[in-house]
Nucleic acid binder design. Structure first.
Length: 487
RNA sequence: GGCGACAUAGCCAAGUGGUAAGGCAGGGCUCUGCAAAAGCCCGAUCCCCAGUUCGACUCUGGGUGUCGCCUCCA
């Protein structure tokens, strides 16, 4: 049962062989809270959430560290624009991310590493690099000597010569080489600062990850993750920094990169301004459907988000729960059969293979459908199937029931227009009850008409309700109504 | 221009050297006063060309196309 992942570093699918027994160390680059978290963030962190769940279900101990780069140029810019302290910007956007992550049931990292909490480690690492002659100080900061690191470009498959042609020096920078990147930025007036041997300032973008992964996980780790857009320059630079300090290679055995998210066929990015704020998406779609949407596709594939696709995912997930509910109902009146043990090995094996969640979901669906057929013929073991389903869903981070998934029509979405309310009141002969009771009453009147086989009246009432945004479903037991989803 | 990924039914999407999971949409049927919901059934030879092979969608070579990165970005 080898667990393997596509490794950006080797461009192959490599087996996971933990450096320390059954403990897997994972470092994932988190967000820089300089703007609203978007659906792309969710995709990435959902990917690593499922990774964690799967490794744990495989009996491995996972130590998962994720960082927050809580100081950078854009945070400072934003703070200046909003005339508020930089820490407020961080609190606001990171708080927004955490709230969304919790809604999506993304487990908290074992260690949440904040750059501004680890300035000692960061400055110590920079000092070490200077000491080793891998970095140098200038008037405006400290820079890493890219040409001092022979493996530079290995992760991203880039040649130093080619990079040099495309790079350029910012006006105020005083680098020895255009490729060199900042480890420490000396503060300009009014900027937030931390003390350092080179004077007050702040870290460059990449050094915090090197310092924090080393501090919390050690000189070498099993898996380093992020989205593909971080491969260059961020992860390339991290490698240069860390491996220059430790002298060990590779700093991470496996580099896993989640594919980027497109919106309506276009690249989503902060600079293009077309990104989907997570809070908005969570208002329009259930958290479980969002998870399911991403589970249905490979984590490395670029994925196109559309509301229609999310709707399709929602329906698909409802269908999955319908099967589970049917099995629960069947299981209820039947003695448990111990001769059929829930067998999840195939499911697990699919996830072992580069986290094939799409295959795993398909497998589960097929399995439940088959079990449902078998159980209907009194030849299955619905209890075992339900147990299997719950177990698999847990690994995927999905809840055991529809209700928990938030897929049932939200009561809060009930909203009658004044005209609709008026006509319902007239029909019900009731001017006081709230909308909910009012609808119940009209539905009851219609049911009575139906019982009396006055179908003309019954259909007329259904029509009125429909125009008010209420759909009625009849069954032998009675009528149920739901709010019609708009959009 | 450089590096890389991908190319499977209307759409989304797994997958194996021996004739292609699953989901959505669509069609048919059952149920139902009708409708809705639900259940059952139905669909592709896998971008093109050449090669390897008893046999390739799956391997090799070439081509075409789409996308990403190369600048801040999950």
């Amino acid at each position: 049962m080898a667990i393997r992942f596509f490794n950006s570093r080797t461009r192959r699918t490599d087996e996971l062989t933990p450096l320390r027994g059954d403990e897997v160390s994972i470092y994932v680059c988190g967000m820089t809270p300089n703007s609203h978290p978007h659906l792309g963030h969710a995709r990435t962190f959902l990917t690593f959430d499922v990774l964690r769940r799967h490794l744990r279900s495989r009996g491995l101990k996972v130590r998962y560290v994720q960082n927050v780069t809580d100081i950078d140029d854009k945070i400072i810019e934003r703070a200046a624009a909003d005339k508020t302290p930089w820490s407020d910007i961080v609190a606001r956007f990171y708080g927004e991310y955490e709230a969304c992550a919790h809604q999506l049931r993304i487990a908290d990292p074992d260690v949440l590493a904040r750059a501004t909490n680890e300035m000692d480690e960061i400055t110590a690492m920079i000092a070490q690099l200077v000491e080793l002659d891998k970095a140098y100080e200038t008037a405006d900061g400290v820079y890493f000597k890219v040409k001092s690191f022979s493996r530079y470009g290995e992760l991203s498959g880039r040649q130093i010569d080619e990079l040099r042609a495309g790079s350029r020096i910012e006006v105020r920078e005083q680098k020895e080489d255009p490729l060199d990147f900042a480890l420490w930025k000396k503060a300009k007036p009014g900027e937030p600062t931390w003390p350092s041997p080179w004077g007050p300032g702040r870290p460059g973008w990449h050094i915090e990850c090197s310092a924090m992964s080393r501090r919390h996980l050690g000189d070498q780790i099993d898996i380093h993750g992020g989205a593909t857009d971080l491969i260059f320059p961020h992860h390339e630079n991290e490698i240069a920094q860390t491996e220059s300090c430790t002298g060990l290679h590779p700093m991470a055995a496996i580099w896993m990169h989640a594919g980027l998210l497109n919106v309506d066929g276009q690249k989503m990015s902060k600079s293009l301004g077309n990104f989907m704020p997570l809070v908005d998406v969570l208002k329009r779609h259930s958290w479980a459907a969002i998870r399911y949407f991403f589970l249905q596709t490979g984590y490395r594939k670029p994925t196109n988000f559309t509301d229609a696709a999310l709707e399709a995912a929602t329906k698909g997930l409802r269908g999955l729960y319908a099967d589970i509910e049917a099995l629960r109902a069947t299981a209820g009146d039947r003695p448990a059969r111990s001769d059929r043990i829930a067998e999840a090995e195939e499911f697990d094996a699919l996830l072992d293979d580069d986290l094939n969640t799409a295959g795993a979901v398909g497998w589960l669906q097929k399995r439940l459908k088959a079990e449902r057929t078998a159980s209907a013929q009194r030849d299955g073991s619905p209890q075992a199937a339900v147990a299997l389903a719950e177990r698999c869903l847990a690994v995927l981070g999905l809840p055991a029931t529809v209700d928990e998934a938030g897929l049932t029509q939200a009561e809060s979405s009930l909203r009658l227009t004044d005209a609709a309310r008026l006509s319902l009141r007239i029909i019900a002969g009731d001017g006081h009850s709230d909308d909910r009771k009012l609808i119940d009453r009209v539905v009851a009147i219609r049911w009575a008409a139906r019982e009396a086989k006055d179908f003309a009246a019954s259909d007329r009432l259904r029509d009125v309700l429909l125009k008010s945004g209420i759909a009625v479903k009849d069954s032998k037991a009675g009528s149920e109504w739901t709010v019609i989803e708009n959009e």
